[in-house]
Structure formats: structure tokens, C-alpha cells
Amino acid sequence: MKENKNISGFKTPENYFEHFEERLFSKISEEKFPKSAGHTVPDGYFENMEDRVLKAVINSEKPTKVIPLFAKKYVGYAAAIAACLIIGFTVFNTKTDSSSLDSLQLAAIDTYIEDGNLNLDLYDLTTYIDDEDITDLNLDNHQFSETTLENYLLENVDAETLINEQ
């Protein structure tokens, strides 16, 4: 190939030509896609949205009224029955295993979280944690062995994500 006689001084970003075809073919394919998604909104939907949103914000901040689970008159009966059950349980079941109770509770909590019932997202969490809590966190970097980490990555990270994140 003939060498350029004069050098212009221009440069291209790194790997520019390597991915050129990919970008070009992507662009050509895109040209055939419809230009709009086809969605519409009800008439006047965006009008007065400021008022509706503010109302929703105010409503979301109102403390919710707590309805007692049991009416007061039944509380006495319930307490009496509970007391009998506790006494009966203590008297007739002397063999207690606190470790199994602990593990049962932990398992129940694990299932509860795994089932997605703990609906806390990043924004909710940050409202409970301040900077001091974060510094107080004692992160133990050695709690996972290399083998455990490797196994976890092999099982849980798909190749496509890795390629995409490159």
C-alpha cells in the first residue's frame, strides 16, 4: 500500500478501526427499524401532572392508621390460652435445643429474603444508613475463599454479561 506522503496530524480513538464494521452494520440494520415505538397517552395526561405528583408525595408520607389485629375483649382470652400453652410446653417438653431453634429462625429469615419479600431497594437502604455506619462496617475480605468465589462466578455470571462489560 502506498504510504501517505504528508502526515495530517489527526489521530483516531484507540481500536477505532477494529470495531468500525460492527458499528457500520449496526447503523445499516437500525435504518430499517421503525422510527417510533407506537405508544400514545390519554388526552391531557401530562397536564396538571405536577399537582397529581405532589398529591401522591403527600399521600405517601401520611402515617398509615394501624388497625389492631385483635379486638380488646379477646386479648384476655388469647393471653390466658397463650399462658397455658407456654406452661404446658415448658413442663412437658424439658428437652430443648436452642441451636435448632436458632437455625430454624435463620432459615426462615433466609427464605423470606430469598423470596423477595424484603422489598428494600438501594434508595430505601440509603435512607437508613449514614456515612458513619458505612465507616463502621467491618468488611472481612477473607470470608470467601478463592475457590468459592471462582465457583460462584462460574455458576452465576453468564459469558454475555462479561463480553458486554469489556
Binding site: 405508544h39 401530562f46 405528583v53 401522591a56 408525595v57 434508595y123
Partner: peptide, 29 residues
């Protein structure tokens, strides 16, 4: 924000719910 959400959830009523929640989160945080 509405169109960003609508393109993900597709349904208008769902998009309206998510948009309201988004603004509530913005206001609170």
C-alpha cells in the same frame, strides 16, 4: 421520564404508576 419508563413497561397505567413512584423517590431522597 415517562417515555423512558413506558418503553420498558409498555402499558400506560403501569408507566403512570412507575413515574409517580420515581418522583416520590426523587422528592424523598
Amino acid at each position: 421520564l415517562y417515555w423512558q419508563i413506558r418503553n420498558m413497561v409498555l402499558d400506560h397505567d403501569d408507566a403512570d404508576d412507575v413515574l409517580q413512584n420515581t418522583f416520590i423517590k426523587i422528592f424523598r431522597n
